[in-house]
Nucleic acid binder design. Structure first.
Length: 117
RNA sequence: CGAGAUGACCGGACGGUUGCGACACGACUUGUUUGUGCCGAGGAAAGUCCGAACACCGCAGGACAGAACGCCGGCUAACUACCGGUGGAGGCGACUCCAAGGAAAGUGCAACAGAAAUAAACCGCCGAGUAAUCGGCAAGGGUGGAAAGGCGAGGUAAGAGCUCACACGGCCUUGCGGUAACGCGAGGCGCUAUGUAAACCCCGUUUGGUGCAAGAUCGAAGGGACAUGAGUUGUCCGCUCCCCCUUCUACAUCGCAUGAAUCUUACGGUAACGUAAGGUCAAGACAGAUAACCGUCCACGACAGAAUUCGGCUUACAGGUCAUUCUCGCCAG
RNA sequence: GCUGCUAUGGCUCAGUAGGUAGAGCACGUCCUUGGUAAGGACGAGGUCACCAGUUCAAGUCUGGUUAGCAGCU
């Protein structure tokens, strides 16, 4: 599991990433990224996903996956948003999809930075 | 053996690796550090439907309105909950269910059907009359959820509680039993009275508002202003205050985890529950902590995630366990 | 976490002192026109979100459930 100090926690940070970040989409996940020196990750699981038990389960799995892939992530602020239907996936699938998104984001790092400025 | 009834309980287990949150004790590089120990979701944590604690609203006052409840007795911090009884309804039964005061205080409503709906005469019956028609009656028919008690006898022109009987219904008086609701009897009164109060209402009881995003501590700017205004309920009265309003920033610390707590035993009580003794401290976050993988076993795992805290209610739920428990049916002896 | 509101034909809505559920648009058939639109006539379409209760009778009254919407920060 990810320690608290590596997680994105402030309301303002979420708003910043959402408006200024580059987005990468998947069938079940959305990733928003802003480059920076520190390395912070946030998770969004909305009410649409399900009731409290399902939401918590999804959130835990996402955190667990990110922890295992921690070394492959570059510095910056990340937000993973869950989309409807994700409750049908197992842990392994979620992990695969997250790693694919991370690869995509880190691969086009330079281009994303140019577009932003 | 099968079908049920009632009450209580459990809610995968064990082991290994990696990982997360709070707390305690250490370490040194003194902080977004690290090591060890210990603890870490539920019977409903849910819905937010009642009742409280606690906090604030200057005081927490009054009246009306509004709201809730409504057989009796207990229990409780409190309650509309709970327990026991009474009455009623359902079931062959064990047993279950019931917002269960007042309809002669008043008002409203009762569609359609039906002659007529709180009111009396369509068909009908009887009498008078040649007949038209007039008078008497409410037994029978039919409508309706409901038609001025039921059934029998007497009585009559025909009929009618008009009169009488009833282990019938109602009202009044009274005896016995019960704390009481009420029950079981006795006597009297021929007896007018439909339903609806989960329609307004009447009677009785209770009730100030807002809710931990309550609130306490810590800022800045702008505007109004000496009687306006404000003081969190709809209206009014009373009382009080001198400052009030708006916007923005910050989201830290406290509130915040020992409590009407819970477990065991004993005693009292039919029970809810109470009393005494002893034991236990057992989540406390603020983008919000329980996951991933593997192995073994079985019934192959449902509903579902704490957010101020308790007592209830309601709703969801795979499967399973227990009881000198209770009922019905079938078979055998 | 807390507090409110709504649910009626395909769509937008009425329906207040319980008594056989209505309007507009849309839809179908016919008339009108050389044809279309407009207009006219007729018609179909409803478990009144769901489950119980009160009542002779419930869209309406009472309790519960489920969806959806809004506000408080």
């Amino acid at each position: 599991m990810l320690k608290k100090r590596y997680r994105l926690r402030k309301r303002g940070s979420f708003a910043y990433v959402r408006t200024h970040g580059t987005k990468y989409n998947d069938r079940y996940l959305t990733l928003g990224v802003v480059r920076g020196n520190c390395k912070l990750v946030g998770f969004v699981v909305s009410n649409k996903i399900g009731k409290a038990v399902k939401r918590n389960l999804v959130k835990r799995r996402m955190r667990g996956a990110v922890r295992e892939l921690w070394t492959s992530i570059g510095s910056g602020q990340y937000i993973f948003s869950a989309r409807t239907g994700i409750t049908e996936l197992g842990y392994a699938e979620i992990k695969e999809r997250i790693s694919a998104l991370i690869a995509k984001a880190c691969g086009v790092k330079g281009a994303a930075a140019e577009n932003r400025t």
